[in-house]
Write a protein that binds this DNA or RNA. Structure first.
Lengths: 148, 148
DNA sequence: ATATCAAATTGTAATTAATACAATTTAATA
DNA sequence: TATTAAATTGTATTAATTACAATTTGATAT
């Protein structure tokens, strides 16, 4: 679903006050599943909403996160990244192109860790390396550079 | 092994210039497997080496990391953590006591991701929740507070 | 042992992500 | 439409990390 009402619904269901800023942020995350940083979200939304404050972006993201509507990643080392998808999945970071790819496989380890006696609430599976795309370009040699 | 020569060996093997600072940092990490931050390492070493600079700590950690002698974690959101253990393992962060526990189980997912065509160089398995210790204390209620 | 030189260390300053806070505005309710 | 708690804004601050220039030091060859 992508109508604005959808995001209003989400907010109302969480008893979160509905504001244009929050709708915009939710919409942005829903349509940019590239795991953007707060800065990226801020800069993009500021274009069409120049009065937007960075603090609002941080505050809103925090609220959405606390309500389980979005999740955060620490797959890169210097900043948090935000994800509209909350269903458990893993991530692959390509060290060459920087892309963060969703990996939709389950984690067979949660059960094992539970057997140790710990209660597992969150799982983050971060894999890093070179993605298929970049590997293919490297193999074919100077094939991709030619885009005059 | 815990003799200082051991750390000298490690540095020499990596063609890294041997300095007291690097030895100290390696020794600290080897004897504090609690995944300390750069700040923690700095503050602790500064006690016995007041001239130590924080920049040196960061530089040394970077060098050690680039040579694969130590690894880094992003399991907490605001700072990097350092690990002397380089053999693949996972981590559990207790949201109550803050402890980061080593989880020595393998990851059956690397193979699956490789089948997607990506080359996996690094694996980070971060699990978060409440550790066994904290759960036990919570269950027994006011049992642990009494340590007059 | 000593001189040499690249590399490491130090201290300060700068950068960057994130947070704190006070003043203003606004969404929800009566 | 008035009220009020909560959200937004803008600025200032914190905290982790990086940049950089001056000084010192470890490794090597003499």
């Amino acid at each position: 679903m992508s109508t604005l009402d959808h995001y209003v619904e989400i907010l109302k269901k969480g008893n979160i006050k509905v504001t244009q800023q929050r709708i915009d942020i939710l919409k942005y995350l829903d349509s940019h599943l590239s795991h953007p940083t707060a800065e990226e979200i801020f800069l993009s939304l500021k274009k069409t909403h120049p009065a937007l404050s960075k603090t609002t972006v941080y505050n809103s993201l925090d609220v959405l996160r606390k309500h389980g509507i979005i999740t955060t990643l620490t797959i890169t080392e210097n900043e948090l990244r935000y994800d509209f998808k909350t269903k458990m999945h893993h991530h692959f970071l390509c060290k060459k192109c920087g892309q963060i790819i969703d990996i939709d496989i389950s984690c067979p380890n949660i059960e094992k860790i539970s057997k140790f006696g710990h209660r597992v609430d969150e799982v983050h599976g971060y894999f890093k390396g070179i993605c298929k795309n970049c590997l293919d370009q490297g193999r074919g040699k100077n094939k991709s550079q030619s885009l005059t």
